[in-house]
Design a protein around this nucleic acid. Structure first.
Lengths: 216, 216, 216, 216
DNA sequence: AATGAATGAGCTTTCATTCAT
DNA sequence: AATGAATGAAAGCTCATTCAT
């Protein structure tokens, strides 16, 4: 009978431990900049386990990517937008997107890293391809309801709308260092954050409500 | 290290040659992923010259960053916006920003890379800190003229406006791989590009013209 | 880096193997002149192992220094001088010092090398600082006994005595090349060696016995 | 007519400038550790001049060695010992040797460096081989006069005597770092210096005066 | 399920030196 | 007599990975 007190952590726990440490390392230094040794130094088991569980540095990176994308997808699905009015639902979606980027800079950094690598891991991962996003569906529903109700006049499609929402939310986190330095603005200051949140939502909701631009 | 002021034509040519190749390499693979050997293999001189002119891999990267930021700054200054109406000037600025990002994906990638590195090189470079941007001044002038003429009602400040313009222009290039894959959209297709260009301009101009969002 | 305490026999063997080869290389060429590649070429494992076990060229040099100083200290402690008369004990100490330098030119060369480097490695090594020498204690005991017995009249202190003994023993090995060439003397010829050994002992023992120098 | 104010330093001055800087560099870092670039950085002309005047790093090192050995030889010849009594002459020679080493640590370091390199440069240099030392002759004269006068009883030969004098004078400078650290003694403190000077002279003069060591 | 020891390949960087004028 | 530009060769070191148990 093994003594529970000295029982080793089980496999899944070890795996998660490695994954958590790896996420931080890859987010901090990118794929090329991350060091397997650095990850090894911070996990409770040995470096050999990384290869035991994930096969290679790239395999580990992929697992991190899958975990991280899984995270945002799971949350998006729990927004429960159908009970809100189209405008309310849209605002809620924007706010969620804003907050998620703000609170998960690691996610933002990892997406940047993956784009530097031409998104090739994401493209190759079956898991990630099967993680079919519900965002587009949600936005499509909102758009349809809004147009039916006459509150949205824009002809924007759901994917483009998603881009318009994501872009500023992402940019202010991904580029906070260069933008912040060049224009002397602290992107993470609370008052800046709130102002940005309002501004982004106002601009997009306004745009959808169809205030056509008047004579150029 | 040679004094730039008294450099011979040939030396300057060699330097530029290295710089051009290095820009491509750093944009393609990032700072950690770039290989000094790979850069050397693509220039007519030897790897040794890289260290002769730039001191280190990081020194070369910094030189690339300075060159690339210098490029966009120089163009921004030649837009000649004062002769246009506020709305026209704003549209022109948006179109320029859009086109510049679209046509210079290397610039976008390098900025992403620099942000992965917390903007530390940009922060440390006196050259880059002295490259004082005229964008903000230009936007400030446009805003003032537009408000004076009663066409702009938004209270947005110039830096935030710059962010609102840059974000979507940047995002559709920086994230084209992940976004394109996940939502099955070819971000570089001409019709997509033109639609995005119009959409971004409409949204921002509309927002400034103050179509207040109607009751939520 | 492996924990020395739980190192396997093979690992220890590999370590020792590297150390032995490195000692020869550092003694032969100095710290700057030694080549990591040259050391690697002479061991059965690869160059990589040097960094695996010692971290850096300097780390390896330090390990060599520690080994070499440990060697002489260990021997000094086994001289068993207490059972001899003060004069006999002193002679034995001088003879040991002479023989050790004569038989371990690598030790002499390494100490020269370390002094060229301002003794900075020795200063920084905790191991070396803790290798507290028993020579001084031994000499102090000899001096005390000799004075108590009235055979030593000199007031020299133990450290200075140690210097007076070491200096000629060291010098004839360390400087054998320049001295030998300039004064056409083969410092390693057996008859020279024996003459020097006698001469050094006689001079120092004589000095301690207090033959005061007569009026100058 | 060249303007005297902007006339370049003449060849000999340039040569000396390089030599002075090189001596410091070689003494500080040894032959392998010295950097041609470091020397170049501290001379008033360009690095190319080093090769112009001295052909190679080794050529420069040799020139330094020749200069440095020339220095002590010149001084030794000006001691004017014949007018002193044998004991006085001997003391004067010892004091000179002591002071010279004390005041010229660079000389000591360079000799150490040359010995690390097996004295091969000294051996190969015609200049250095022709720099026939007068020390031995001087000592031989002193010994002869002392024996004739009955004040010296030792049968030591002049070269061995020279070694006995040089060894401690050299050692306390060459090994000041390791010895000083291991035995916690500041070898360059004025009171230590004076005590050593007296001690060395007393021991050697005493030895020559033939205080035979009494029964062991 | 787990691991300590070992490693080949390739990385950035350095160095004394020479070319061309 | 003097020099700025250029360089081949090799140095120290790092990295993801696998062997053997």
């Amino acid at each position: 009978m093994p003594d529970p007190a000295v029982r080793k952590p089980d496999a899944e726990k070890t795996r998660q431990n490695i994954l958590t440490v790896a996420r931080a390392e890859f987010a901090e230094h990118g794929l090329s900049g991350a060091r397997v040794d650095a990850i090894a130094a911070r996990i409770s088991t040995t470096k050999r386990m990384i290869y035991y569980y994930f096969g290679s540095k790239e395999g580990l990176y992929l697992a991190v990517l899958e975990q991280v994308y899984g995270g945002i997808r799971r949350l998006e699905q729990s927004l429960d937008l159908d009970r809100l009015s189209p405008v309310e639902a849209l605002r809620r979606m924007i706010d969620f997107t804003f907050d998620y980027h703000e609170q998960n800079p690691d996610f933002v950094r990892l997406v940047s890293v993956e784009n530097i690598h031409h998104g090739e891991h994401l493209k190759r991962s079956e898991t990630l391809r099967n993680l079919n996003s519900t965002v587009i569906d949600s936005l499509r529903t909102i758009l349809a309801r809004g147009r039916a109700g006459g509150v949205f006049h824009s002809e924007i499609d759901a994917v483009d709308l998603h881009m318009m929402i994501s872009a500023p939310c992402y940019y202010r986190v991904s580029n906070r260092y260069t933008f912040g330095t060049l224009f002397a603005r602290d992107m993470s200051a609370p008052e800046v954050r709130e102002r940005h949140k309002r501004m982004i939502a106002d601009a997009i909701v306004g745009y959808l409500q169809g205030c056509a631009t008047i004579a150029v």
